[in-house]
Simulated scan of single mutants.
Amino acid sequence: MRNGVASDGDGQGSMAAGLFEGQYVWHPAADDRTLASVCVDVRAGRYRSAREALADTRDDFGLRAHRSLVLASEAADSDLAERWLAEEPTPEAALLWARVAVLRTLRAAAAHDERAEALERIALTACERASTAAPHDPTPWVAKLTMARLHDIREPAPQGLLTAPAGPWRLFSHVLRLDPWNREAHHRFLACFFTRYGGSVNAAWDVAAFLGQRAPATSPLRLLPLVALVESYNPAQLLADRVWEQPQWRATALAIYQNWLPETAGYRFTPVLDLAYLAHALLMAQREFEARAVFMAMGPYASRMPWSVFGDPEEQLSRARRSCGLPVPGAA
């Protein structure tokens, strides 16, 4: 099992998004009920259920990435990760500490906090410890890759990219040796080429196309070009909102709709963020029928991206749903 997909006979079953009941659910746990329950415990300073929830993902790297990242966001403002690691030095405790340490580093760097450099050293140590505790787990390396955007790493790109953008290619390649289609790793790597992290629009498009085309047709990594397209959105440009109507982008969105969307029925949690990017692209491409089906697959679960790029995320999401004839909060 990989990337959160439950195989037949897995015993977990898929977690259907369910019907929309009038309110959006913004929490990133979405319909992973186990994770949602553990988040409550973590906020209360208890880690026992986190141990079980993460141990359950040792053979499912997609779910492991998802749960560890969400739990880190809940634990980052407390000493739970350090306390758990001191009391139970398990691979799961080491992973949560690495995730928490990386998150603290990114927050400090974004705030131009003078402690950012020291926090990064702690995070690198935490990632090393987690990778040593679980040598076959790509997640600690993905956590380390997340911090690559803080530095101007100039490793040469492989052949096949038009702009040959330099970046943290060696670290990314190491993750791929452990898990070739690791979703989070691809997104973290692509982010290194975003303009807000010192990259360029052309480099981001080039990397997104290169990585997306390599992925299987049924993979959510096919969404990478659509992510880069949102990232490059500039409302000041002429006809900026019409870009998604261009044949190449409409065809990209429709292919993902046809090949990947059916796969999500077997996922152990609803991939809300990926579905949101697909729904947005289809809607902007004037394909309301297909967008409606994607929104139905999302159920009440919501993500701030990509909607926040275009305005208030709740307003943008509600506008999109109304365009597809779907209910929104507050509607009579």
Rank of each mutant, 00 (worst) to 15 (best):
M1I: 00
V5Y: 01
S7Y: 08
G11V: 04
G13D: 00
M15Y: 13
G18D: 10
L19V: 13
L19F: 13
G22N: 08
W26Y: 13
A36C: 09
V42Q: 03
A50R: 12
R58K: 03
H66D: 10
S68H: 08
S68K: 09
A72M: 08
E74R: 14
S78E: 04
E82H: 15
E87C: 13
A94W: 01
V100M: 03
R107P: 01
A109I: 01
A118T: 07
A118N: 12
A123R: 07
A123T: 08
T132F: 15
A133E: 14
P140Y: 04
V142F: 10
T146E: 12
R149T: 09
H151A: 15
I153T: 14
E155Q: 13
P156I: 07
P158T: 04
G160R: 06
L161Q: 12
L162D: 10
T163S: 11
A166S: 08
P168Q: 00
P168S: 00
S173H: 04
V175E: 00
L176W: 01
R177D: 05
R183F: 01
H186P: 12
R188M: 00
L190Q: 01
L190N: 09
F193Q: 11
F194P: 04
V201N: 06
D206E: 06
D206L: 10
V207Y: 04
G212K: 02
R214C: 05
T218K: 03
P220D: 07
L229T: 09
Y233K: 14
L238F: 10
P247D: 05
Q248M: 14
Y257H: 14
T270R: 08
A279T: 12
A279V: 07
A281D: 04
A285G: 15
A293P: 00
P306F: 12
P306W: 13
G311D: 03
E315L: 14
Q316R: 12
L317G: 13
S323F: 03
S323D: 09
